[in-house]
Design a protein around this nucleic acid. Structure first.
Lengths: 149, 149
DNA sequence: TATTGTTATACTCTATAACTATA
DNA sequence: TATAGTTATAGAGTATAACAATA
């Protein structure tokens, strides 16, 4: 049964949907623009950041996590190894596998990249009212739940 | 001067930054995954959606809006014209310009794409409490302000 | 001269197919 | 046989450089 209250809810959900989609998409583009002033590409940084934050991984683990095929990840890893950001060594327990580890230089790069973006976002967050920040805190939790569901 | 209260604010802003960055990034990836089940690529759809929603544009207007160089946009537009989603005609008032317009087929494609994604998001939004939706409404406004600043 | 757009060419990231080496 | 990874090759999207046409 659809009464007037249900109709109001549907309409407000469509508006929320449109508003939220647009806002998130704009923020994401802004994030990308900040990151773009970097030496390293988005996909390379994303792999390097995973190795820095979550430790060594095999090639297939990386390719699954980034949702690319193994040959693509192989190429990405090659570039990172050549640039000295990642070290590749054989897995002693399984000769088919390789273990990819971020080097000190790779760690430093990720920290610098993060520092720059977060400096941008934080400088804007600090200008908000505490009420607005509290709203964003709650929203982040809700958005994360939505994205993971 | 940094007192204990300032320190507390800095720390909470760092946490909000981390939490918000992560949540937005996850939602965006989820959005992309929904869209990926499409015939048309992300960059092409983005251009077509602009023409559908905001009306005819010149090539340089499109390239500026999407932040790509004119030759790249020229190629994107070529593909959309070949597929029948966009019509290209000369600007009667300025012989250098071209006017790009979405065709009926292009409009239909964007509507279908939107329908599918919004169905996903809306189906999740209706499951939230009204309080959570109100939080998201406020957050969308704040996030948009952040992204545009 | 400056602006609008196109063509030619190259680079990056991704994919599929075919292969090697190991389990 | 199945799994982990690499090499070869191709396609999509982007860029720069050089160009043509118009203002």
């Amino acid at each position: 049964m659809i009464d007037s209250r249900t109709v109001a809810t549907i309409s407000s959900i469509e508006e929320l949907d449109a508003s939220l989609s647009s806002a998130v998409s704009r923020l994401f583009r802004r994030v990308r623009a900040e990151k773009a002033s970097d030496q390293i590409s988005d996909s390379h940084r994303s792999v390097l950041a995973l190795l820095v934050k979550e430790g060594p991984r095999s090639l297939s683990e990386l390719s699954e996590h980034q949702r690319v095929k193994p040959p693509s990840m192989s190429q990405t890893v090659n570039a990172l190894v050549e640039q000295g950001y990642v070290e590749r060594r054989d897995d002693p327990t399984d000769g088919r596998k390789v273990i990819l580890t971020a080097t000190a230089s790779g760690q430093a790069l990720i920290e610098e990249t993060g520092r720059r973006f977060h400096a941008w976002l934080q400088s804007h967050l600090v200008e908000l009212s505490e009420d607005d920040r509290e709203t964003l805190r709650k929203a982040a939790t809700i958005i994360r739940r939505l994205a993971d569901s």
